[in-house]
């Protein structure tokens, strides 16, 4: 049972990430590869303020989301002037910058959480407390699964309200022809800032749940591989509608689990997992550009 609850928690976390990325990629046409960095911002913020300051889950998550929103300017301001391949390259630079911060903000002889050693570098932060909301402890895997599910549903409702609103329509219009949208008086720069801030804040929320559940965070959560995994989820599941990212997140969580029931050594299984992701992406690119359940074809 615990195994399925574990999968459920991961599905919820990655569904939040996929829904947030869908706002930027699927609705706004901004293919960002920096999302793992914002996921890690949420995770590290939760880890630091809960371990060092004893903050509860909600304020810690709120702070993580706020920091991620502000940090999203690094990506959204790039989108003011660049699009397409150049924007992807700039988001990659932001990804590298964030990873570098998490990895290198470290001094061996200083206590972690101090200005000299904020992230503990490659050793990461262990012993992160489980979520605590108004004194209510989420210690068991079942209770954390419930919390993750509630937050995922809340994010889903928010995304649904947003994408079905005139704001969601404006995102699609910008994606189709930004110049014409500007000619209609739409401040597309500001809208890009809004969408990236919302998407990055949601990624940070997912990162906080992850840190609270696993009780450990290190810079590997902010690698380019993770960003590519997030992008794979939405490309395989599909973008530009509500259900596509959910399908992608659940599928890419569930597919590697099949390997558990096949007699493959653990060392090989990790590589096979990457192979499966790559295979999914190639198959989708060839046979169904809009993804399994998506609406918008990324060409």
């Amino acid at each position: 049972m615990n195994y399925f609850l574990h999968l459920g928690i991961y599905a919820c976390i990655y569904s939040i990430v996929a829904m947030s990325l869908n706002l930027a990629v699927g609705y706004c046409g901004l293919l960002t590869l920096a999302h793992a960095g914002y996921f890690a911002i949420g995770a590290y913020t939760y880890a630091l303020v809960s371990v060092k300051l004893g903050w509860g889950f909600l304020p810690a998550v709120g702070l993580g989301m706020a920091i991620a929103s502000v940090a999203s300017l690094a990506v959204s301001m790039s989108a003011w002037r660049f699009k397409g391949d150049f924007f992807v390259m700039l988001s990659l630079a932001v990804q590298s910058l964030l990873f570098s911060l998490f990895y290198n903000w470290f001094k061996a002889d200083a206590d972690f959480g101090t200005w000299a050693n904020l992230t503990n570098g490659p050793f990461g932060i262990a012993g992160i407390p489980k979520p605590n909301i108004f004194g209510l402890q989420f210690q068991t895997i079942g209770s954390i699964a419930l919390l993750a599910a509630v937050l995922a549903i809340a994010c889903g409702v928010i995304c649904w309200l947003l994408v079905s609103s005139p704001w969601g329509r404006l995102l699609k219009a910008m994606r189709d022809d930004e110049l014409v949208a500007r000619g209609l008086g739409k401040n597309t720069r500001f809208v890009k800032m809004q969408v990236m801030a919302i998407a990055c804040a949601m990624a940070a929320l997912a990162g906080s749940i992850y840190a609270g559940y696993v009780s450990y965070i290190d810079p590997s959560a902010a690698t380019l591989d993770e960003s590519i995994l997030f992008v794979c989820m939405i490309l395989v599941g599909g973008v530009g509608n509500f259900k596509g990212p959910l399908v992608g997140a659940v599928l890419l969580i569930a597919l590697p689990e099949v390997l558990r029931f096949v007699a493959i050594p653990d060392a090989i299984a990790a590589n096979v997992r990457l192979g499966i992701y790559g295979l999914c992406l190639v198959a989708i690119a060839h046979f169904r550009q809009q993804g399994i359940a998506g609406e918008y074809r990324i060409e």
Binding site: P166, W167, R169, V180, G185, V191, E295
Partner: peptide
């Protein structure tokens, strides 16, 4: 230069100035 993935109706309505719903 219509917005290709929007319906014709949405192509028109999206142009409305000062829409409340364009604020998230």
């Amino acid at each position: 230069r219509s917005f290709a993935t929007l319906s014709i109706l949405d192509n028109i309505v999206v142009a409305t100035a000062d829409q409340l719903g364009e604020n998230p």
